[in-house]
Every structure is written in structure tokens, then in C-alpha cells.
Computed example of a mutant assay.
Amino acid sequence: MMTNLFSIFDPSTNLFNLSLNWLSTFIGLLFIPYTFWFIPNRYFMFWNFIFNTLHKEFKTLLGINSFNGSTFLFISLFSFVLFNNFLGLFPYIFTSTSHLTLSLSLSLPLWISFMLYGWINNYNHMFAHMIPQGTPNILMPFMVLIETISNIIRPGTLAVRLMANMIAGHLLMTLLSSTGQNMNFLIILLLIVQILLLILESAVAVIQSYVIAILSTLYSSEVN
């Protein structure tokens, strides 16, 4: 039972000794050509509205000292995670964001680059950030330790948050679908619950992509 339940997250399924499941990560690229039409369509106008809204919000969070075009990095991160989260809801498409391999590969380089930039170019601010204003002298060593630990675990929390939220909903939907053969009279109720869970998972896919993008923006704004 547990093997079948977790088999949807197994990336080792291969064809001709090639692990082709990870190719689902690039399916989101199929949506990009629609934005290059000569005549703007509703799809282009919809994404243009979302990107402009995110650009204004990220620009406000980054502040006036941010580099020009830095918001596009986080908008690209949002789009990439959103496509992978949403495509994982379709049957027989591997959910790559449900694995720590991909989520940590996204969060760890971002965190390392922020830390290197902050400690090399603005180390006074980085030291001051470890001790909040108004902290008593006796608590300063503990605050430095706590802030250091919370700073180190940031990429892990970003990765685990995305992975756990993607796994939880998919596991629940798989668990309910596996019990459908034993529910002859309640199959309509099961279908309704599955549809509601699918709507919930669609919302979670959007929310989690927004959360990882907004937290990455907040982490980068702290090093300026």
C-alpha cells in the first residue's frame, strides 16, 4: 500500500535506462511561445497583468537601493515554480517540485548569493542585523546564536515548505482515489471530494509559488 501510495513521487521510473520523469520540469516552456504573438491575446494580457503586479510588489519590498531588473529574477522564479506545481496536478505528469532535489536547488543558490553579497559589500549591516535594536546586553550572545541559526536554515525551510505542501495534497488525493473501488454507493461523494481537493491543490500551487518568491525577495532585501 505504501509503495503504491508513494510511487507517484518516485523519480527513478525510467525508459531505456534514462530517468525521463525529470523532463516534466521543462513542460512549462511550452507556455512561453504564446507570449510572442504579434497580436496580444488574452493569455498574454493575463500574464502581463500578473507580472506587472508582482514587479510593483517586489520593487516595493526591495527598496530604492535595489538593482534595476532584479525583480525579474523573482518573477522568473515564481513562474517556474508555478508551472511545475500546476502541471503536477495533471495525470501522469511527474511533480518535480515535490522533491527536495529541485526545491533545494532553487533556494540554496539564491541564499548563498545573498549571503556572499551581504557579507562582502555590507558587512556592518549584516553584523547589526544579528542583534535587534534594544536587546539587553546579557541576551546579546543568545540573540546572535539564534539569528545565525535562523539565517542558516532559511534555504532548508524554503525547500521543505514547498516540498511538504506539494506532497501533502497529492498524497491525500491518491489515498482517496485508492479507496474508490471499495465505495460502490459513495462514489459520487468521492468524486465531489476529489474535485474540491483538486481546486484546493490548484490554489496551493499558486500560493506556494508566490510564497517562495516573496520570501526570497524579503531575504534579498535584508542584505541591502
Rank of each mutant, 00 (worst) to 15 (best):
I50G: 08
T60E: 06
N124H: 11
F114G: 00
M45D: 10
Y92F: 04
H125I: 14
Y34G: 07
S76L: 12
W47M: 14
F83H: 00
T71P: 05
G63H: 03
L116E: 12
I75Y: 07
K59M: 09
N48C: 12
N41A: 09
I32Q: 14
L62S: 04
L139S: 11
H99D: 10
W111T: 01
H99M: 10
L29F: 11
S98L: 05
H99Y: 13
F94Y: 14
F26Y: 14
N68P: 06
I112G: 12
P33G: 06
K56A: 15
M115R: 01
P40N: 10
L108M: 15
S107D: 08
N41E: 12
M140H: 11
F26P: 10
L104V: 04
P33R: 10
N68Y: 06
T95P: 07
H125F: 07
Y117C: 00
T101I: 14
S96A: 06
P132N: 12
G69W: 09
L61C: 08
W119I: 09
F83N: 00
L108Y: 14
F78V: 02
M126R: 09
F51K: 11
N52D: 02
S103D: 04
N85Q: 03
F51T: 07
F31W: 08
S107M: 08
M140C: 15
F31I: 04
P91H: 07
G69Y: 06
N85G: 02
P33N: 03
E57F: 13
H99L: 14
P33I: 05
T135G: 13
F31R: 00
Y123P: 10
P136E: 03
L73E: 08
L61E: 03
P141T: 07
I120Y: 07
I27P: 02
P33M: 06
S70G: 08
M45Q: 11
L100A: 15
I64Q: 14
M140W: 13
R42S: 08
F49W: 03
S70R: 07
S107L: 03
F51D: 03
F31G: 06
P40H: 08
L139E: 04
P91W: 11
F46W: 10
S79C: 05
F26V: 03
I75K: 03
I120A: 13
L82Q: 04
F90D: 01
I39Y: 15
F58S: 01
Y123L: 03
L87Q: 02
I93Y: 00
M126D: 01
M45G: 09
I120L: 09
T101E: 12
P109N: 09
S105M: 15
H99V: 09
Y34R: 06
N48Q: 15
